[in-house]
Computed example of a mutant assay.
Amino acid sequence: MRWVKRMGQTLFVLLIMLAAAGCGAMEQGEVNPYSQGDAPESVSGNKAEPCKAIIDWVDFLMINNIKYDHNYDGTKEVTAEQLGDKVGEVSYMLNEHACTDHVEKNGDAAFLPIGTVIYAMKGYKPEFRVVADNKIYEVRDNPNAATMGDLLDINGRVEKVSLESGKDGSPIGDFSEEASYEFIQELLPLSHVGFDAVYKKIKPEAGIFLRVHLQDGTSFRMVFYPKANAFTDGAFGTERLKELIMTQRELIKAAAGM
């Protein structure tokens, strides 16, 4: 997705941020999720009208009806040995070409030039991670994912789960080995309902930043909302999963003197 400043299609992102601000200063380990918006070019007859929107693109791509975001803070540049089969190719670059009326379609990418090859990543299902321009792109939305396990190809790959600061994203502490294992076992069977369904249930509150660390040294962030018992990845948690997260959070914060 993309975040279009001052454009109506992304007001839901701003509303989340403003609601959190209204609740007062956020604790470390608590924060609101970030999202993105939309953008494209308008054509009248044979003359393209300049896009007047101020657009901040998020580095994304879309193939096979799956949308991926560049995992910029939890991965490293991919080596040639990690490249799998070709799974797609960029056919349209949105940056400097698209405006707010653009409808995302297969072959779209925010910053990747036309012709950029998209590869599967060895060791992962392409529905979860792909590679383009030596960067890892991770699933943001997959309409065919029935469960979180379908969305996230991480079963048997997790090293640990940790808590992060909502102020600067710095690590606060790790879940215990047993709690990390149970977290994944509770998470993966959850029904994947998508972000829109979760957003309707989220009340104005700060989310809790969690990071899932994989055995290959990569990681990704998840945001959990306690009142809604929901993840922005598009799932509602079980009571046991909520209890596990909140208990580990308190233990980690106490150990950190917070």
Rank of each mutant, 00 (worst) to 15 (best):
A21P: 00
I54A: 07
A39L: 12
A80I: 08
G22V: 02
K67S: 03
F60D: 01
P33N: 05
I66Q: 02
Y34R: 04
G74L: 04
G29L: 02
N64A: 11
D56F: 11
T79A: 15
T75W: 05
M17D: 14
M17F: 07
H70K: 14
D59Q: 03
E30G: 00
N46M: 05
S35M: 10
Y72M: 11
Y34K: 08
L15S: 13
S35V: 13
E41W: 04
A20I: 00
A19P: 00
A21L: 14
E77C: 12
L18Y: 05
D59P: 03
S35H: 13
A53F: 01
Q28Y: 10
P33S: 14
W57E: 14
G37F: 09
G74P: 02
M62S: 07
Q36Y: 09
P40F: 13
H70T: 00
G74W: 05
P50L: 07
Q36S: 13
E81M: 08
L15K: 08
M17P: 00
I66K: 10
P40G: 14
S42L: 15
L18R: 08
T75G: 02
E30T: 07
E41G: 12
A39N: 13
L18Q: 08
K67Q: 07
G22Y: 05
P33R: 13
V31K: 07
E27D: 15
V78L: 13
L14A: 14
I16M: 12
I55V: 15
N64C: 02
E27R: 12
P50V: 12
I55R: 03
M17Y: 09
I63L: 12
V78C: 02
A20C: 13
G37P: 03
L18F: 10
D56K: 05
A25F: 04
A53W: 00
S44H: 06
N32L: 08
K76Q: 09
L18S: 07
D56E: 11
I55K: 02
V43I: 14
G29I: 01
W57H: 09
K52Q: 09
L15M: 14
N32H: 10
C23T: 10
K52N: 09
A25H: 05
N46G: 10
L18D: 09
S42H: 11
C51S: 11
G29P: 01
A19F: 10
N64S: 11
N32T: 11
G29R: 04
G74T: 02
L15Y: 07
N71D: 15
A48N: 05
M26H: 14
Q28D: 15
